[in-house]
């Protein structure tokens, strides 16, 4: 419990914070405590009206904000870097992607009347794709996905 409040106050170092967050994740009752801490903090800080009709919604919204600002600084880079994952390396993955199924010739995906034309240089799209996947929650959920998508090889290469 002490560590939990330390975590909330950003007083833990990165290593301790990581362990504590894991513990938090393993124990539902700790999660409830964590949320209650935030709730109390909210009320103590502001003039929140309690128990109104949309209380739950506003609480959720506020918790959302809190989740990004009360994490230990060591764990958080930009304020809004909310979703985490073990992301593939940018340069590394760019190189990997160069092998990758980056054939823009295939499957134009627009609706009727829209024709696929040219696209920016492949290299830049690759970097964008990797940057995008660092933020993708569905990738984060699987843990592996960023690597999978970025080291995938295309058929031509397999055929060599």
């Amino acid at each position: 419990m002490d560590k939990l409040s330390a975590l909330m106050d950003s007083e833990l170092d990165a290593q301790d914070a990581r362990l504590e967050i894991r513990r938090l994740n393993d124990h539902e009752e700790l999660c409830a405590t964590w949320e209650t801490f935030h709730l109390i903090g909210d009320v103590l800080r502001g003039d929140r009206q309690l128990l109104s009709v949309d209380f739950a919604a506003r609480l959720r919204a506020r918790l959302t904000e809190e989740a990004t600002v009360t994490m230990p600084r060591a764990l958080w880079l930009p304020r809004a870097a909310v979703y985490g994952l073990s992301a593939a390396a940018s340069l590394c993955a760019v190189a990997a992607i160069a092998w990758f199924a980056f054939s823009f010739s295939g499957s134009p995906v627009g609706t009727a009347g829209q024709v696929a034309m040219t696209v920016p240089a492949t290299g830049r799209i690759s970097e964008y794709l990797i940057a995008h996947q660092e933020f993708s929650p569905s990738s984060a959920l699987q843990g592996l996905a960023p690597y999978i998508r970025t080291v995938s090889v295309n058929q031509d290469e397999i055929g060599q």
């Binding site: 990581r18 959720r60 989740a67 764990l75 979703y83 985490g84 994952l85 940018s90 340069l91 590394c92």
Partner: peptide, 16 residues
């Protein structure tokens, strides 16, 4: 290829 830098990582689903 060597790539250094802090990455986003969070081991759980956040409330949002």
């Amino acid at each position: 290829l060597i790539d250094k830098g802090q990455r986003r990582r969070f081991p759980t689903l956040l409330p949002a």
